[in-house]
Amino acid sequence: MNTTTTDPWIRRSTNPKLDRVMVSPEGVPLNVTVATAGARAGALTLDILIILGLILGVTLLGLLVLWGFEAAFGAGVSLETSGPLNVVFVLWIIAVFLFRNAYFLYFELGERAATWGKRAVGIRVAARDGGRLTAEAVIARNIIRDIELFLPLVFITSGEAEGTMSDFTAWAGFLWVLMFLLFPLFNKDRLRCGDLIAGTWVIQNVKRNLGGVVAPSADANGAGAGQASARYEFSDADLSVYGEFELQTLESVLRTGTDEALETVTKSICAKIGWEPGTGDERIFLEAYYTALRAKLESGMRFGKRRKDKYSADI
């Protein structure tokens, strides 16, 4: 595994066990995060609800059309043979078949490779080998869904309704369902059987905005940052107490931190390097320290020397 792209101190997701590297066809390793089982379950639940809603909507629409025919041509017309009832019923059967089988296909073949449920929780389907997600793969992964999801549902509901299930078949069916439902939990990539057959996986979407430049420019107009670098001079000893982990923590404080957080961080840095913390210009002090520390660590980087955190050897 490439250490520069999977640097452990660059925290990418809440659960590092789900971080993977996918090599793009250009040969550049891309960091991806496998979707959690919870997100998958949530997306699936949403999708099932949407499908049920669609079926319900089509049923109501069909009834409405029939009602319209009744009102227009007199009662009883829709019950006649080869009347509108037949046509509506045929359309209903086709629509239900399509909702059950084509809903996932249609959306996963789209640009975002995700159903509405998957979009809502921010996950998408991708090819495991880093190549193109083909139509065949999407078809394969969704055909398998039939035994994973719909078959057990039909099995359980029909068996329960008819009361024909013996204890043995009930338990066998239950184990069957469990085997497929829990399959993603038993492999590290959270693959369900369909993913396995199709060579796909489900990963998290990433959407981050480009933040501003944290390090102040040398001659930013007039006061503020311009004076900072003039006012604060850090010796090499001052800068050798921290590593990249602390630098990036400082960066996130500077990007999003409150005034109290800035104050706390200033105090702890000053304590560490033996300075007397001033008041009122914490931000300027921290920006100056951040810039100096980053300049030092980055110049080390250019020579291939990196310092993971404050416990690692100085560069």
Binding site: E108, L133, G211, Q248, S252
Partner: peptide
Amino acid sequence: AGLIDYLEGLALRSYFMVYGT
């Protein structure tokens, strides 16, 4: 880190567009 996060995310998103379905 903010910049690298942004680039990583954008690279993945545009990768999916270039090598989409």
